[in-house]
């Protein structure tokens, strides 16, 4: 069920000639990266290659790069962010965590009904008034997803959003994310080749120092791809080869 409140035409995300150094180490020297409008784009890569840096760059959290939509327009105000940690505030109830953006922008009590509806959509309606520390890891991640959707932005950036939960819960969360975020431009970073293959309309592997992005050929199965769909296993092997060429040969 795509969020009915979301009806705008989402922009594509373009990164052109990005140059980023952390300290004296060049992370990107001349990186080009495109995420198509309304599609899920997965980014894989070895640890420390700059996956999170790429997301932070797109989110405008790192200055100094040419970031924009397909017409060169700004993405500021278009982006919702979902980090690796769920970042739920322990002192707020579940529903107030979902409404965090409204609280931070001083919008008062607005959006409580919408927050309730989103919590129901992620299956946590009855936990709205509980504190986050009473939830399981998977439930916390679903609250974080509801908080991301509450922002109702056309572009959603996710940094290893489901890495902290067990594989079975992860599969369920991937289906939920696919359902709830469909129609938006989603860029997600992951360590899990299967997650990239299940959710990605396009998948890139970042590699090298400074890093460059390389597209992976994807199996022709209906999206979101089932874990046991035709060709997923072979594509997984191709991703592992691209991630660590020397180890796979």
């Amino acid at each position: 069920m795509p969020d009915p409140a979301f009806s705008h035409h989402p922009p594509a995300v373009r990164v052109r000639h990005a140059r980023v150094s952390l300290g004296h180490v060049p992370v990107f020297a001349d990186l080009d990266f495109t995420a198509e409008a309304g599609r899920f784009t997965g980014v894989l890569g070895p640890s420390g290659v700059g996956k999170t840096t790429l997301l932070r760059l797109i989110a405008g959290l790192i200055p100094g790069a040419d970031i924009g939509d397909e017409r060169g327009g700004s993405l500021s105000g278009c982006i919702a962010w979902m980090a690796q940690k769920d970042l739920l505030l322990p002192w707020l109830s579940v529903i107030e965590n979902v409404r965090l953006g409204a609280r931070l922008r001083g919008e008062g009590d607005g959006g409580r009904e919408k927050a309730r509806a989103l919590l129901a959509a992620v299956g946590l309606a009855e936990r709205a008034n509980d504190r986050p520390d009473t939830l399981s890891g998977g439930q916390r991640q679903r609250v974080a997803l509801a908080r991301t959707l509450m922002e109702d932005r056309p572009v959603v950036l996710m940094d290893e959003p489901f890495s902290a939960v067990d594989p079975l819960t992860r599969l369920g969360l991937q289906d939920l994310a696919a359902r709830m975020l469909a129609g938006r431009t989603v860029v997600f970073v992951t360590h899990d080749p299967l997650e990239a293959l299940r959710l990605g309309h396009a998948v890139y592997v970042l590699n090298g120092e400074p890093a460059t992005a390389r597209a992976i050929e994807l199996p022709d199965a209906p999206w979101p791809r089932a874990a046991d769909a035709q060709g997923v296993l072979a594509a997984q092997a191709a991703i592992l080869r691209a991630l660590a060429p020397e180890a796979a040969s």
């Binding site: 405008g60 962010w81 980090a83 940690k85 970042l87 965090l100 953006g101 931070l104």
Partner: peptide, 26 residues
């Protein structure tokens, strides 16, 4: 938590709101 501050920035939070809703309670 710097990650929390990043999240607040993507939510267009003002400095005062970050202090009141995130920094002080934390």
């Amino acid at each position: 938590d710097p990650d929390l501050l990043d999240l607040a920035r993507t939510m267009n939070a003002s400095k005062g709101a970050v202090l009141r809703h995130l920094r002080v309670p934390a």
